[in-house]
Design a protein around this nucleic acid. Structure first.
Length: 585
RNA sequence: CGGUGAGUAGCGCAGCCUGGUAGCGCACCUGCCUUGGGAGCAGGGGGUCGCUGGUUCGAUUCCAGUCUCACCGACCA
């Protein structure tokens, strides 16, 4: 019997799910491998992908959750162009600041354009033209758009593409206080979005990067393959990206009596570990000195306790530099007169700022480089033996550090995938682009902005990263491409096909998204494919079960198997889906 | 852009060192067989060996250049 008759749309045999048995050699992370293997995506060029039907379905599912929650939070959907004129970017100052990541090109008239990597300029331009009065705010516009960022190193499939789908939203408020409220609304909407997807995530305090603004939170899906390190307190709500995480404020001042500074020979001992071992002291009793350079050639020396790591971002932000890199050997020699390995703050040949981590303030009798090959000092005391321009928090926090916010907590460390980011922008863009309004007194004021992004493809990838097993993807129901599949074990068995078709039609009637695996393949192939593509529920119709009037419902996530009478299966499946979605819509 | 490695059939790879006939597994097509976890047998199609140039009677193989891709460091949803 034929089941390719009219009315059955989601036939596996007529659909397009090109699965791959072997692992593609260039896929590094699980989500990338599985999305390729499950026939969700295919690469067109580096960091640029085709979304195949199955991948698109999943992406659309997530987009719609995002839309629902954005709408619920009062944001308004619109759509901005992906091609943007250079003038706007020149006006905001980012045409020069953004660098090579911004893909630029010219039209036939030689006018300059770029592929939009983000849309602050465009939305602010629209708002400045349309919004004139405090009565028109608050406003929050959002869109789901394809962005392009010419990443230096695209990788991990949809996790870090150059072209990617992003939901971005922009809020406009009369003042800082109102903007805080908009921010909070978005923060809460984001919490709901990722909770609805069943993801294990953390909202963490974050650096604002090139977007700018005063404060921001990142939404991080926890995964070992994540590109970011984050910390969270085991006692309070504090959580932050390691880039941003504050180290604990107080460390005990040493009680040791100051000893006399003394130069000692340390032949070929360059690293902290080597020096500490050679002098038989703990790394905690040493200070390491590093020289950093800005893009404009400014130099600075950073001082840290020997066992601590520098946080370059903190140092960069502290100095207010645009760029920070480790100084070259020539630059180092120019200001210390010493080769790398023996650097220290005593006897610098050039007057450069010395920034010390706060912990250093409370140390005494430390080991320091002597700015001379094979020489170190012992018993150095900050303030007595060398001057420090200022003390600042410039070290990278570690797991087990005391929480900077609460008395009792310790920091735990995780890897995370950044799937969302919310920013308080303040007036950075509205000022640059003169987006103003008249207040109740008729006085001109600058609009306060916020911006809020979610990586759509990246979130789907992160969900896979967090939900898979050796057989493939285990989609959380809310973003699964289909709720369930009907697998006809033997397509040559007319009774099996009739029953399968009946179940398929009934499920569709109940609003269930169902894929009918009608392929004339061996059962093993069908089971493997259904597992691989991660369909949450699988209904198996086989000759033996059918003889007893029963079919099988298998739950992908748990492996649990239910034998259900034929006439009840549709209702059972609907029930399972409703339960899984309960409280999530 | 810097460092490392790789480009040979749709996918995964061998061959190259030591130049002469391009090969294996999977996938694909035909037939038989098979139908509860990626079966079996038989037959078949598919490659300007990334590109350009050089050496040579002859280059997938040697040389030079070039492009592309992946991995390791700075950006970011």
């Amino acid at each position: 019997m034929s089941c390719t008759g009219l009315g059955l749309f989601m036939l596996y045999s007529r659909y397009f799910i090109p699965t791959i048995k072997e692992n593609p050699s260039d896929a590094e992370v699980v989500s990338h491998q599985l999305m390729l293997r499950a026939g969700m995506i295919r690469k067109l060029a580096s960091g640029i992908y085709n979304y195949l039907p199955l991948g698109l379905r999943s992406i659309r599912k997530f987009e719609n959750i995002v839309r629902e929650e954005m709408n619920r939070a009062g944001a308004i959907e619109m759509l901005m162009p992906s091609v943007q004129p250079a003038e706007l970017w020149q006006e905001s100052g980012r045409w020069s600041f953004y660098g090579k990541e911004l893909l630029r090109f010219k039209d036939r008239k030689d006018a300059e354009f770029c592929m939009g990597p983000t849309h602050e300029e465009v939305i602010t331009d629209m708002v400045r033209r349309e919004i004139k009065s405090y009565r028109q705010m608050p406003l929050n516009f959002y869109q789901v758009q394809t962005k392009f960022r010419d990443e230096i190193r695209p990788r991990f499939g949809l996790m870090r593409g150059r072209e990617f789908i992003m939901k971005d939203a922009y809020s406009f408020d009369v003042d800082s206080l109102a903007a805080d409220l908009s921010y909070e609304k978005m923060f809460n909407a984001y919490m709901r979005i990722f909770e609805r997807c069943g993801l294990n995530f953390r909202a963490v305090e974050a650096d604002t990067g090139s977007i700018g603004g005063s404060s921001s939170h990142e939404f991080m899906v926890l995964a070992d393959s994540g590109e970011d390190a984050i910390v969270s307190c085991d006692a309070c709500r504090y959580a932050a990206n390691v880039e941003k995480a504050e180290s604990p404020l107080f460390t005990a001042h040493t009680t040791a009596a100051p000893l006399l500074l003394e130069k000692v020979s340390t032949p070929d001992k360059k690293t902290i570990a080597e020096v500490a071992e050679f002098l038989a002291v703990a790394p905690e009793a040493t200070i390491k000195s590093m020289v950093y350079a800005s893009d404009t050639g400014d130099l600075v020396m950073a001082l840290l306790r020997g066992d601590h790591e520098l946080n370059e971002l903190k140092l960069k932000n502290h100095l207010g530099w645009d760029e920070i890199v480790m100084a070259s050997e020539e630059q180092i020699f120019a200001c210390t007169g010493s080769p790398v390995g023996y650097l220290g703050p005593i006897g610098l040949t050039k007057d450069i700022p010395v920034i010390a981590d706060r912990v250093v303030q409370n140390m005494a009798n430390v080991v320091l480089g002597a700015n001379e090959k094979d020489q170190h000092y012992i018993n150095g005391v900050p303030g007595r033996d060398f001057a420090v321009t200022c003390f600042a928090d410039i070290r990278t926090v570690e797991a087990g550090d005391a929480c900077p916010r609460c008395a009792s907590g310790k920091l735990e460390m995780w890897r995370g995938i950044e799937v969302g980011h919310v920013f308080k922008l303040g007036i950075k863009y509205s000022k640059a682009l003169s987006a103003t309004y008249l207040d109740a007194q008729g006085k001109e004021q600058i609009i306060f902005m916020g911006c809020y992004g979610i990586g759509i493809g990246r979130t789907v990838a992160a969900a896979i990263e967090q939900n898979h097993d050796e057989n493939g993807i285990i989609f959380p129901l809310p973003i699964a491409p289909f709720h369930c599949s009907v697998v006809a074990v033997n397509t040559k068995d007319a009774a099996v096909m009739a029953a399968s078709e009946e179940i398929y039609r009934t499920l569709e009637g109940l609003g269930v998204e169902v894929l009918f695996d009608d392929r004339d393949e061996r059962p093993g192939i069908k089971f493997k494919d259904n597992d691989l593509i991660g369909i949450p529920l699988r209904i198996v119709v086989g000759s033996k079960g059918l003889a007893e009037g029963k079919v099988e419902v298998k739950i992908r996530a748990t492996g649990e198997m239910l034998l259900v009478p034929l006439e009840e299966v549709a209702a059972t499946v609907r029930q399972l889906i409703d339960t899984a979605l309960a409280g999530k819509e």
